[in-house]
C-alpha cells in the first residue's frame, strides 16, 4: 500500500483568529481599543480605550466608582428596567407580525390572532408569555428602582432633575403597560381598561374630553383598540426612548452614580 502523504495540519485557534482579525474589514468594524481587535492587551490603556471607543461610551464613562459595582448598592435595578424595555421591544416586534388591532361584530380579528398566537404560531405562546411577564417585571423593577434611589438620597443636588425625568418615565412605563393591557381584547382586558378609563373621565374640567380622546368614542370599542394599539407600539415607546436618553445622559453629566453613603 502506497504511503499517503500526511494531511496538512489544521490551523490552530490563534492562527485562525489572527487571520480573521488582521484584515481591512475587521479593522474597519472594530475601532482601536476594541476587545475584538488584534493586539488587545489587558492594560490600563486598552481598558480605557475599550470604553472610550465604544458606542457604550454614551452610557458609561471610562471609569466608575468602585462602590457602585457592589450588587447590593444598585441591585442593577435601573439597568434591568432598561433591559426589560429592550426585551419588550424585541418580543413586541415579533408579536406585531401576528396581530391585527381589529375588533367588532363579525370581525373579531384581534382576539382570533391571540388564540392563534397560543396555538398555531411557532414560539407564539412563549414570546407572548415573555412579553406579558416582562411587562409586569418592568413595572415592578421601575418601582423598586425608584425606592432604591430614594433611600440612597440619590435625587439630591445635582441630580434633582433626573429624579423628575425618572418620575415621568415611571408614568410612561405605567401607560405603556396599561395600553398593552387592552390589546388581547378579552373580558379581562376590556373590563380592566374600563375601570381605568372611567377614572380618567373624572378629570377636572376636561373629564369628558379626556375620556373621549382616550377611548376614541363614548365607550370602549374597536376604535379604542386601534387607538391604544398605535399608542402602545409607536407613540409611547417613542416618547419613552426620548426620556430614557435624557435620563441616561444626565446620570453621566451629574457625576455618575451617587454615593458612597
Amino acid at each position: 500500500m502506497p504511503k499517503l502523504p500526511k494531511p496538512p495540519k489544521p490551523p490552530s485557534y490563534s492562527e485562525v483568529r489572527g487571520t480573521v482579525q488582521d484584515n481591512v474589514i475587521w479593522k474597519s468594524i472594530f475601532r482601536p481599543g476594541s476587545i475584538y481587535r488584534k493586539g488587545y492587551r489587558d492594560t490600563s490603556r486598552d481598558r480605557a480605550l475599550a470604553a472610550m471607543n465604544n458606542v457604550l461610551y454614551h452610557l458609561h464613562p471610562v471609569k466608575v466608582k468602585r462602590h457602585g459595582l457592589k450588587l447590593t448598592y444598585t441591585y442593577c435595578l435601573g439597568g434591568l428596567s432598561f433591559f426589560m424595555f429592550i426585551l419588550l421591544t424585541i418580543t413586541g416586534i415579533f408579536l406585531m407580525f401576528f396581530y391585527t388591532p381589529a375588533a367588532g361584530a363579525g370581525a373579531e380579528i384581534a382576539y382570533l390572532n391571540m388564540r392563534e398566537l397560543s396555538t398555531t404560531v411557532t414560539f407564539g405562546a412563549l414570546v407572548r408569555n415573555l412579553h406579558r411577564w416582562g411587562a409586569h417585571a418592568m413595572v415592578f423593577l421601575v418601582f423598586l428602582h425608584m425606592a432604591r434611589v430614594f433611600y440612597h438620597g440619590a435625587y439630591k443636588p445635582p441630580r434633582e432633575f433626573n429624579w423628575v425625568v425618572g418620575v415621568i418615565l415611571l408614568l410612561l412605563t405605567l401607560f405603556l403597560s396599561f395600553t398593552g393591557y387592552l390589546l388581547p381584547w378579552d373580558q379581562l382586558a376590556l373590563w380592566a381598561v374600563t375601570v381605568g378609563t372611567n377614572i380618567a373621565g373624572f378629570s377636572p374640567v376636561f373629564g369628558d374630553q379626556v375620556s373621549f380622546v382616550l377611548l376614541g368614542g363614548l365607550e370602549i370599542g374597536p376604535e379604542t383598540l386601534l387607538r391604544w394599539y398605535v399608542l402602545h407600539v409607536l407613540f409611547v415607546p417613542f416618547i419613552t426612548v426620548v426620556f430614557l436618553a435624557v435620563h441616561f445622559w444626565r446620570i453621566r453629566k451629574d457625576g455618575g452614580i451617587s454615593g458612597p453613603l
Partner: peptide, 24 residues
C-alpha cells in the same frame, strides 16, 4: 406560566370580578 386569555370581550357582560391591572 402561560399568560391569561379570557373569553372574547363583551361590553354587555360585566364579569363578577372586575379589576384593573395590579399596579392600579
Amino acid at each position: 406560566l402561560d399568560a391569561p386569555l379570557g373569553s372574547l370581550a363583551n361590553v354587555n357582560e360585566v364579569p363578577a370580578i372586575n379589576k384593573a391591572p395590579w399596579y392600579f
